[in-house]
Design a protein around this nucleic acid. Structure first.
Lengths: 339, 339
DNA sequence: TTGAAAGCGCTAACAT
DNA sequence: ATGTTAGCGCTTTCAA
């Protein structure tokens, strides 16, 4: 406690009443007379008394804090989700504690321990690309702490979830490529242990089938980082059946693909159209600008918090819910325009 | 408190000893016998007892939490700083609570209140572009809470600080431009109420003078966002004394400048060299890649936490320190190579 | 060597 | 309408 911090006792002593009367007055308890309430409130105002949240927590067992675990905040998508989380959480009277897993399993486990040990009231998680064991998340549930997954979810646990309509988003992206003339579309895919990786691939495949294009396993390549794109895309461009469209699982991979295509002497979008996923800041600053699937990260963050706080504050065992956020195909310069 | 959470009382009861003995045993108090300590530790292990941080906080008055206020985490620089903060803080047994000011004064004030009301042990701040009144920060100090500014500092308050050697970084950038043949270098500057804006301008001017180039007020233009660059750079390119070099106050402005230059029909770096500041992720994915000044955000975060924790844990009134982090000119594709 | 009791700031059941 | 008391989980004198 910081020196000089006013407590309920100080107020009580000054007013010559008991601490509990002060407490009740502040909580607008019906027992307390209007005059007393007024006197108390005035002094509270004057002395700028603020209840100690620590003491409150000790009494209630609640910390009014929610924990968040994300892979990396450098990614535009996660930073927008975090903004959504922050805004709604603070508006709802909750604090937020962040941990980055840095895409490693060990850090993710450690983050869970950290949040658990600081007694957060609930936890929001987007898992790493490499998480295959979910024991640490089960521990959260065993502790009776509400858990909500967003974007990169875990299917093995019963929880609330907020997901992006990845399958439809991917379908829309590939449909756009097909409608603008692409006949040989490659999908640079994410890891298939992540649901989002699978769903985006499924959307890609559904679009090809829907428009009677041939699906070819050779056209689905695991490639979801800049580094991988640097190696893989030049190889693609050397194929005899060179792709005329690329649907990448994220913006960064898409952008690096564009760069590689240009470096190989081809034009984007004339020779090859490229579409990314996220519609982040970088998609606006490349040349050409990158057509991409908007994910509405801010809204995902808000919905996830809403679900979590609801779970924290209602005692009843509500059934688990999964909220799906619609995507939006944003056409920019890296894909040919219709017509 | 979550149901089933083991307390010191449970341990005591099971072992038929008193809670205070358990407490002392766990804190390795010399009074307690080795046998008792062993027995206590074994049961603690077995029952997975963890002391309640809330109770600890109430006793000690310390929350082992530090608060951080940054303008926006979507910016690469701030997200790297945050990573540094997080890593060192957690390793030192502290939790971290983030707030974004979104570059507005109101949000910044609110963030201070939020952190103060959650009783953090210390606060780390990088101020907004528009902050001109510092009463909210003074309040932090009045509460006796250690405060450390980083990057965007406040000069009106006596505090510890971690800053980037912006002046030298800017000097290096402009020196590089001069040495590679630029004769008419424009500086797209940041707001001059921020020390970093001033320092980068000063470094720009010092380099020009050092190399006997003419300094011209017309060549210093307040422009530190993509939007501004979209308007300002095309105008620059229409000047009769068209610039052959641009030193931008940040990467995003630099990148947008490159795009505008290209759109006006000129080549980067042949006609105009461009250098940014931050050396963030985007500087690697543009064409050409962006030459930029590396700021070492991760290290800034670590140093800031070090300073803060030191201040929190030492009772003595140490003199305030300012740590300066060296920058590094990273030459890439947007500036001509020497020779 | 161990235990009893008080207290951190607050609330709430139970007096008065 | 107001006060007393106990207790949240833990530490820390002080007493045994």
């Amino acid at each position: 406690m910081y020196k000089g911090q006013v407590t309920i006792k100080d107020i009580a002593k000054e007013l010559g009443i008991s601490p509990s009367t002060v407490s009740k007055a502040l909580n607008d308890h019906p027992d307390i007379s209007q005059v007393t309430k007024k006197v108390v409130r005035d002094l509270v105002e004057k002395w700028n008394y603020k209840p100690d949240p620590i003491a409150l927590s000790l009494k209630s067992g609640l910390t009014k804090t929610i924990g968040v675990i994300v892979p990396e905040i450098v990614h535009y998508f996660f930073s927008t989700v975090i903004s959504g989380i922050e805004d709604l959480a603070y508006d709802s009277g909750y604090h937020v504690m962040f941990c980055q897993s840095n895409e490693t399993y060990e850090r993710e486990v450690k983050a869970v321990q950290t949040l658990l040990s600081s007694r957060v009231d609930g936890i929001l998680v987007s898992i790493t690309k490499v998480t295959k064991d979910f024991g640490h998340f089960r521990k959260i549930q065993d502790n009776g702490i509400p858990l909500v997954f967003f974007d990169r979810i875990c299917n093995e646990l019963d929880t609330d979830r907020v997901i992006v309509d990845d399958e439809q988003g991917a379908f829309d992206a590939v449909e756009h490529l097909i409608k603008t003339g692409c006949k040989n579309i490659v999908h640079l895919s994410g890891p298939q242990n992540l649901q989002i990786g699978k769903n985006r691939k499924d959307g890609y495949l559904r679009a090809l089938r829907y428009y009677n294009q041939i699906t070819d396993e050779q056209n689905i390549i695991k490639c979801d980082t800049r580094e991988e794109a640097t190696i893989i895309v030049p190889e693609l461009m050397k194929r005899t059946n060179r792709p005329d469209g690329i649907f990448a699982v994220n913006d960064l991979t898409a952008v690096e693909s564009m760069n590689m295509i240009k470096e190989c002497g081809f034009n984007v979008p004339k020779d090859v159209s490229v579409v990314g996923f996220t519609n982040g800041m970088i998609s606006d600053i490349t040349c050409p600008t990158l057509s991409s699937v908007e994910q509405h990260g801010y809204m995902i963050g808000k919905e996830a918090v809403k679900l979590l706080i609801n779970r924290i504050e209602k005692k009843q065992n509500l059934p688990f819910r999964t909220i799906t956020i619609k995507t939006e195909m944003v056409i920019k310069g890296s894909s040919r325009n219709v017509g």
